[in-house]
Structures are given as structure tokens and as C-alpha cells.
Design a protein around this nucleic acid. Structure first.
Lengths: 173, 173
DNA sequence: CTTCAGAATAGTATAATATAACATTGCAGT
DNA sequence: ACTGCAATGTTATATTATACTATTCTGAAG
């Protein structure tokens, strides 16, 4: 099955097939670096390291997992360390939160502002990001009808990735 | 602004306009009762009371808010009381979890299995449920392309409801 | 009627996620 | 040097959720 560990097969959208993940990381990191200097925001060591950690795999990582890694890197062990880095990275659009998992994943499309959508495997917890339209048509329509102004949306589908295909029952109600 | 309190205006889909919320509650409760007996599941007092509490408003309620109310009703004060009731209600499709808020809302369409979608006001936290297709087209397409089997999906849009229309910046990154 | 199995509830403890609040540092602009 | 702001350090606590064990209730089998 897919497992999202660095260098192994993952189920992330563009990572369904084995790929040079080193390239993957470099590409995104370079883009982030470029965007940050362009926007004159402070891409500090802890922020950069947090992004590097999340980029190691296409799987979502919980905040406390990230914190542990940051601590190992000498950036401190208290929750605000991780949450501040995440706030920044999410603000810049370099990282997304996967609400369904309460976990965080590096954005694979940092070059464009977009509304992400995720395919989440309930078995291996791999997360595939796709880059789609701002919101499902039905929601847009309902919003128009009721005078609701959509600012951002969350689209997450849970199920089984190809590699986890056979057994078990649905996780949702 | 909309506020979702019982008997006042709310921004929930069918509740954008003032309505007889008593009818609203009765209708859903009756339907739940019917479905429960049809499915031979045990709609016990604590489960029923939990649903009644959530039905009081079209806003999402956190688990510990529900717990407090259940405790006030004599059903116990420990977290499992609320989470067990929620597990049941969600399993039956009578309640949805709003992932973005980590909060729970009574389903307004208990008569049909469906994938819910929500419009969440970031100011008044009102939640409007709409009843839509299983997943956004783009996700379905991506799923097909990668062999991912979608079992359920989450669609949540955050923004400003009509009543909260003017000021402030976006909450998302 | 008794016993047994399963569902539901009660209760305890703790895990996991997230933020508030305040102190300190370091640097850019004046 | 001073000042103002962004970032970081630190402590504490809030919020959300689950694991686990024991007990009670109820209905079906014997």
C-alpha cells in the first residue's frame, strides 16, 4: 500500500507513481523561497525547516509530529513552535490543513493560489492533493441563493486508495 | 446577523428565513424515530435527548457543549456520554460533524442518505446544510484517474452569511 | 425460571490537539 | 541610542477525543 514515507510510493495526486521526490521537494522549496522574498515575508529557519519536514512525504502530519521533528532539529519543544510555523506556512499557502485528520500537508501547487481538495485513504492515511475549482457547484449555487459570500472551502474525500483497495467497512456516518 | 439560537433567525439553508422551528424539530425528530424503529436500532433517551439538543438550533455545537446540556438533563457529565450519543447519531445519519469547527449539527435531511455540504459563517458560526451530489466533479475525476474509491466526502465553505456581510479579512490560508 | 450474550451505560483516566498570555530578543528605520 | 515591530521563548491551560474497565439491562435460548 501507499504510505507516504519519504522516497517510497505514495498515493498523492502526482505521486501515485514513483517519482524523484528529491526534485519534488526542491521544486516546492525553491518556489516557496522565491514567493517569500517576492512578498517580503520572513522565511525564517524554523519556518523553512517545518516546510522541509512536511515535504518529506505526501502524507499529512499531525502538529505534534511536526513539533517533535522541530524539537529534534533544535527549534524548541513547546506547541507554539509548531503552531506558529504552521500558521505562517498556511498563511503563505505553502501548507494546507487536512481538517478530517487534524493534520497538515505541504502544498504541491505553491505557485498558484487555489482551493485544494484531498483524497484521503482511511487505511494508509495517504493524502492526494488535487487543484480544483473554488467550490462545488451546488455550494456555490446555494451561496448565491442565500447571499452567503464564500471565502474559502474545504473539499476532502475519504476512501480507499488503489493500494488499499479490498476489505472493511466505511468510516463515515 | 444570524445566530442560530433556538427561535431566532439563523442562516441554515432552509432557515435563512424565519420559520416555525418547532415544526422543524418535530419533523426531523419524527423522521428519526421512524427510521430508528424501521432499522431496529435503539433510540434511547440519551440519544434522543442529544438529538433534541442539537435540533434546538441550526448552528453547530461542540461536543462539550452538548455534554454540558446532557449533564444538565441528568445523563452524566463524562465525555463518553456525549461522544457515544454522537457516534450513534452520526452512524444513523441524524447528525453531521462539521470538521472545520470540530462541532456537530443535526441533519436537516434525515430522510435520505446523502453527502452534506455546509456554508459556515466565520462571524456568527451559523451553519447552513445543503444536500448535494456525492463529491465535487474534480475530485471524482481525480479519484477515477488514480483508482481511489471515495466512500464519503466533506464539503465545507467558510465565509460570511448575508447578515454578517461587511468588514474584516479572510480566515483561511 | 435461569442463564447467557450482546448492547448500552457508567466511570476513570489519559491522549491528542490547540491557544492564551506574557516575557525576551533582535533588527530596521530614524 | 531609541523605538517599534516581528519573531521567538516559555509557561500554563483550554479544548477535543479516546482507551479501557466495570456494570446494568434486556431479550432469547435452554
Amino acid at each position: 500500500m501507499a504510505n507516504g514515507k519519504h522516497g517510497e510510493r505514495t498515493a498523492a495526486a502526482e505521486a501515485m507513481r514513483p517519482h524523484d521526490h528529491g526534485d519534488c521537494i526542491r521544486r516546492v522549496l525553491d518556489e516557496a523561497e522565491r514567493r517569500a522574498s517576492e512578498d517580503k515575508v520572513n522565511f525564517t529557519p524554523v519556518r523553512r525547516h517545518a516546510l522541509e519536514i512536511l515535504l518529506e512525504s505526501h502524507a499529512a502530519m499531525p502538529a505534534y509530529g511536526l513539533l517533535k521533528r522541530l524539537d529534534a532539529g533544535g527549534f524548541g519543544s513547546q506547541p507554539p513552535v509548531a503552531y506558529r510555523a504552521l500558521d505562517f506556512l498556511i498563511g503563505q499557502g505553502f501548507v494546507h490543513k487536512v481538517e478530517r485528520l487534524n493534520a497538515y500537508v505541504a502544498c504541491m501547487y505553491p505557485h498558484e493560489t487555489h482551493t485544494p481538495a484531498f483524497l484521503i485513504c482511511r487505511t494508509c492515511r495517504s493524502v492526494a492533493e488535487t487543484c480544483v475549482s473554488p467550490a462545488p457547484a451546488a455550494l456555490l449555487q446555494e451561496a448565491r441563493a442565500t447571499g452567503f459570500a464564500i471565502e474559502c472551502s474545504v473539499m476532502e474525500a475519504e476512501g480507499l486508495c488503489r493500494d488499499c483497495a479490498p476489505g472493511a467497512g466505511a468510516p463515515c456516518g
